[in-house]
Amino acid sequence: MVEIQADEYGGGSAARMHSELFAGLMSSLGLDPRYGALWNEAPAAAFASVNTMSLFGLHRRWRGAALGHLAVVEMTSSEPSRRYSAGLRRLGFDERVTVFYDEHVEADAVHEQIASIDMCGSLVADEPDLAVDVLFGAACSLAMDGLAAVHLLGAWEAGRSGLRTERTLAA
């Protein structure tokens, strides 16, 4: 987990911290990058996955589920990040916008191996009874992402934003 966190914190470079890269993406899109600035505009479905992850992380009893949840996030994020980056480039955005997703294409491919094999595999080898919890956490991650996808795709099919209020993005 320390290895994954070290990458998230930019490997010692404040400018490469993933939170800073994301803030730059938000600013470049004309959105407020301050922590929590857009919470009131986000639908409840957007919080389902992180709330589930927080629940697992707050209770030691759910440590296997927390690792399963993290492993699925890492295992399923590299390809979507590649697609987000490509889509933003097609819309005319440059590296100031795409760097956050570009970083996650490579980093999450590595994190996938660390989370699934080193973390989950080691935990289950040491404590086989937690295998079901690891799988439960993984299933919860996929289910919560499914809820968010249903909300977002439903909004798009209806011709509206997935946000609670309409926003105009810089292009």
Rank of each mutant, 00 (worst) to 15 (best):
122 S>V: 03
138 A>T: 02
123 L>R: 03
46 A>R: 00
85 S>T: 10
29 L>Y: 00
54 S>T: 15
3 E>Y: 04
143 A>P: 02
155 A>R: 07
71 A>Q: 02
103 E>N: 13
77 S>R: 11
158 A>Q: 05
152 L>I: 07
75 M>K: 12
52 T>E: 07
141 S>D: 09
23 A>Y: 01
119 M>R: 03
49 S>V: 06
23 A>I: 01
115 A>D: 04
63 R>K: 12
10 G>W: 00
144 M>K: 07
16 R>W: 12
17 M>T: 13
137 G>F: 04
68 G>M: 00
64 G>R: 06
149 A>N: 11
78 S>W: 14
94 D>I: 00
147 L>C: 15
65 A>P: 13
157 E>L: 08
143 A>L: 12
170 A>E: 10
15 A>R: 12
27 S>W: 12
76 T>M: 02
67 L>K: 04
61 R>H: 07
47 F>P: 00
112 E>G: 14
75 M>W: 10
27 S>D: 15
146 G>K: 04
33 P>F: 09
116 S>N: 13
68 G>W: 05
51 N>M: 13
79 E>R: 10
131 A>R: 13
5 Q>E: 06
63 R>C: 06
132 V>R: 05
30 G>R: 11
49 S>L: 05
57 G>S: 11
95 E>A: 08
99 V>D: 04
59 H>L: 11
23 A>V: 07
158 A>V: 00
168 T>E: 06
87 G>L: 08
121 G>M: 08
6 A>T: 10
149 A>W: 05
82 R>M: 05
106 E>K: 12
24 G>R: 05
91 L>H: 04
16 R>E: 02
153 L>W: 09
155 A>M: 09
